[in-house]
């Protein structure tokens, strides 16, 4: 009788856990899900912006694709646990803001301890300026052999390798903007200060750039009415 009871109890608990876990959708199903629908995903933290005001914004991925979780309610202590590779499950609404598809209004976020995963950057240099680039949205991407082009400020004849804020209105610690070119096409990249602050290697590296430098870059392919990569690494081109 005891064995039967134990088996029944184990079955009940297992079924309960399955009921909780089965809500998570695959990346393909996430992509296919309607906007404004509630979805649960299981993915791995790749990076996150600085915690602020009880929230943290997460760049995430699984083996099939990438996600952007906008402002996950979270304590500062819990945010510190979100190291790259950390597995989690999250429930929120699939939303789109200025072209960026994201999981917003997160109602459930739970760290899972079973395994870890860190994605490798995908080289999208050849996709720059092409419509296919959107398929890599939110992924960790790489750009190879880009040349630093001058940035200018309205009313200022000087040329700069980078600007604090898009129009040069900022100061140390603000977002960095810099232009890079490839095959005659010029693009503006960003170091998002909430992701990579002024003490990070990438922030310092961009501040050391000179016009004409040839560099390789890595970052997350954020979207704002078009591709707006958040750069996380800059090195001299190999």
């Amino acid at each position: 009788m005891k064995k039967i009871l134990a088996a029944v109890l184990a079955l009940i608990v297992a079924l309960s856990l399955c009921a909780m876990a089965e809500e998570a959708v695959s990346y393909a199903d996430y992509v296919a899900a309607d906007l404004d629908s509630e979805v649960t995903i299981t993915a791995y933290v790749q990076a996150h912006q600085s915690w602020w005001d009880g929230k943290v914004t997460i760049y995430a991925a699984d083996q099939d694709g990438a996600y952007f979780l906008y402002e996950v309610p979270c304590s500062e202590e819990d945010a510190e646990k979100l190291v790259p590779g950390t597995k989690f499950t999250a429930t929120g609404f699939k939303s789109e803001w200025s072209g960026e598809v994201e999981l917003a209004d997160i109602s459930n976020f739970e760290i899972l301890d079973d395994d870890t995963f860190v994605s490798e950057p995908v080289d999208v240099t050849d996709l720059l300026g092409k419509d296919e680039l959107i398929e890599k949205m939110n992924q960790k991407v790489a750009f190879k052999g880009m040349t630093v082009e001058p940035s200018t400020i309205e009313g200022d004849e000087n040329e700069y390798a980078f600007l604090f804020n898009w129009d040069g209105s900022g100061e140390e610690g603000n977002d960095l903007y810099f232009n890079v070119s490839k095959d005659g096409q010029t693009f503006t990249f960003t170091v998002e200060s909430y992701l990579c602050g002024q003490d990070t290697d990438v922030y310092k590296a961009v501040e050391m750039l000179n016009v004409g430098d040839v560099i390789d870059l890595e970052g997350f392919l954020y979207w704002y009415n078009g591709a707006n990569p958040h750069i996380t690494a800059v090195t001299a081109a190999e």
């Binding site: 300026g129 898009w166 096409q185 960003t190 704002y224 591709a227």
Partner: peptide, 8 residues
């Protein structure tokens, strides 16, 4: 505004 990737 911030600025973004500037396409050709």
């Amino acid at each position: 505004r911030n600025e973004e990737l500037r396409m050709p």
